[in-house]
């Protein structure tokens, strides 16, 4: 046996090296995406300067790039605001769902609820989009009008609503879409809490409310991770948002009015952007911003998750 070992190890080494090219695909794709977006996006930054990130106007010109104005700020701010709205709404719902599934539901119902959340996660985003356009936006439209007429003095509700297509509608739709992801992260951590802590909490005479709060405190890094990953999801979602956000180059100051996000901007403009000099490059630059945002929230999220494991 001892003599056979080295030979065996050699074939195993071969197996290892043979798999490396496949294993590194993800890395290569990310690198390539980063490279393409940078290489194509930088010319826009060079030509227009930082103005391309800070301007709020979007005035394409078919002939002369000098005469065109491209400002990504409304889209970047729109991405951030819609994603933040989504996370703020989705977090309490996801935590409630976790408690419902893990603590309240009888074990059979628990399985059914879990499968339903899986279906929610797997439902194509375009289906959320058509629901947004066909149901959510129309029922929100009169509510927005009401908000504007009563609270119109507040900047948040000061603008003219346009048929329910708005930053807030996009945020709400995104909230629904990211619930399964936040839920998945939080539930996994919650379930991983050793039983002895639950028993300790119960043995002190804590009510369900008191001990779930305590246990949620224990997995706080996982909750933060869920928020970060959910934020990343919301920021990168494209088609559903593009259908309900209204696609107007406004800063998202008034949330009941139409706005735009980076991904919906790309979805709407990239197809014809090659007709306008440098517009495509501006959109690549927007893509780069989106990529950095996505990777950063993912990285921080993973970092948080490793902290849970160390602690618990």
């Amino acid at each position: 046996m001892a003599q056979k070992r080295p030979a065996e190890a050699r074939s195993d080494k071969l197996f290892y090296y043979a798999l490396i090219p496949f294993a590194s695909t993800a890395f290569l794709i990310i690198l390539l995406t980063l490279f393409v977006l940078t290489a194509k996006g930088l010319p826009a930054l060079e030509f227009y300067g930082l103005k391309v990130l800070t301007s709020t106007r979007w005035l394409p010109n078919e002939f002369d790039p000098e005469k065109a104005v491209y400002g990504l700020l409304p889209a970047i701010a729109g991405t951030l605001v819609t994603a933040i709205i989504a996370v703020v709404i989705a977090l309490p719902l996801s935590l409630s769902l976790t408690v419902l599934v893990e603590e309240l539901a009888p074990s059979r119902v628990r399985d059914i609820l879990s499968s339903l959340v899986d279906v929610m996660a797997g439902m194509p985003t375009i289906v959320y989009g058509v629901w947004g356009i066909g149901f959510l936006a129309p029922i929100l439209a009169p509510i927005y009008s009401g908000l504007q007429s009563t609270l119109g003095s507040l900047p948040l509700f000061s603008c003219e609503p346009t048929g329910g297509f708005s930053i807030l509608t996009a945020g709400l739709l995104l909230a629904i879409m990211i619930i399964p992801f936040i839920f998945a992260v939080v539930k996994e951590a919650y379930r991983a809490i050793p039983a002895t802590y639950r028993e300790a909490a119960l043995s002190l005479g804590m009510t369900r409310y008191e001990y779930t709060r305590l246990l949620m405190g224990m997995i706080k890094p996982a909750i933060i991770a869920g928020v970060l990953l959910g934020f990343g999801r919301a920021a990168s979602e494209t088609v559903a948002v593009a259908l309900v956000v209204g696609n107007a180059f406004n800063l998202p100051l008034c949330i009941i009015g139409p706005g735009i996000t980076v991904s919906s901007l790309i979805a709407n403009q990239f197809g014809e952007a090659n007709l306008y000099p440098l517009m495509q490059n501006v959109l690549y630059l927007g893509g780069l911003v989106l990529l950095v945002l996505g990777l950063a929230s993912n990285f921080l999220g993973i970092l948080m998750l490793t902290r849970v494991r160390v602690r618990v």
Binding site: P194, E199, A200, A201, S203, G205, M218, K220, R311
Partner: peptide, 20 residues
């Protein structure tokens, strides 16, 4: 039970102070 456990406390086999 919450009241009962205020009078009847328990210590377990594994040390389990709350880590957070």
């Amino acid at each position: 039970p919450y009241l009962l456990r205020r009078y009847v406390a328990m210590v377990f086999q594994t040390p389990n102070p709350f880590p957070h």
